[in-house]
Amino acid sequence: MKNFTLNPVLNKELTLRFRSFKSYLGILFYLLALGLIIIGFIFIETIAYGQNFFRPSASREMFMFLSALQLGLVLFITPGLTAGVISSEREKQTLNILLTTTQSSTSIIVSKLVSSVAYLMLLIAASLPLYSIVFLFGGISPGQFFITAGFYLFSIITFGTIGVLVSTLIRRTIIAMVTAYSILLFLTGGTTFLTVLLSEISYGYYGGNVSGFFPFPYFTAMLNPFFVLISVLEPSFNDELTQYTGIHFPLWAAFLISYTIIAAASMVISIKKLRPNMQRG
């Protein structure tokens, strides 16, 4: 509480989060899970090719696998960390007192989001030694690595804002969590299903000629962070999608725009709804 350059809510959130033993256990289990999967991947890769060594050419595949896995894990954790930030304060009866201070709603909401994002970034930073295994075998440029890290940060912030929004709007934490996970499921699994389905429809519609203009799979794919990650790491995916949809606009740019709108809208609504509108009863 000594640090007065930090926002008090952020300062308090970070103090509480890192004073809890559970946070460190979370990091431990996260790294254990990630490490075991990587070792498993190397083991399977070695056996599959009947060799006693890991092929350096498989390093790129492992990087993509690891990136997708990390994205999945981080997105899975995000609603758990953010969907209770406001509702749990309400349930613990600490929110009312906080709202009678002169802290602005923006400051409270942003601080809550930043503290959650900070923990998730710590998880990612803690996994860097595991990434070094990939670099050991080569095949990945530092640029690709930094793009992936930036992509994580952006996805975490967006899903974090969705979590904070449902936490603000829904009074019960458990219901807020279920809602946040449902939205996450739609934006990952739901959009995957729709993209595949719409691509199949497109294929059937054009009778096998996939060079037509059927933009709908693009609109669902641009909301799916896994498709966007693949498109960033494997540009051929972009070409294939362009063939199906006729849209040449990069998928990552569409993702950036749509997720920025989602994040901004979530933040604005959260800030507006945190306190009552005193002018309207």
């Binding site: 308090k12 103090t15 509480l16 004073r19 809890s20 613990k92 009866q93 600490t94 009312n96 007192i97 009678t100």
Partner: peptide
Amino acid sequence: YMPDFFGVYDQL
């Protein structure tokens, strides 16, 4: 303001 029911932050 002191409400009738209030909570505290456990780890502070």
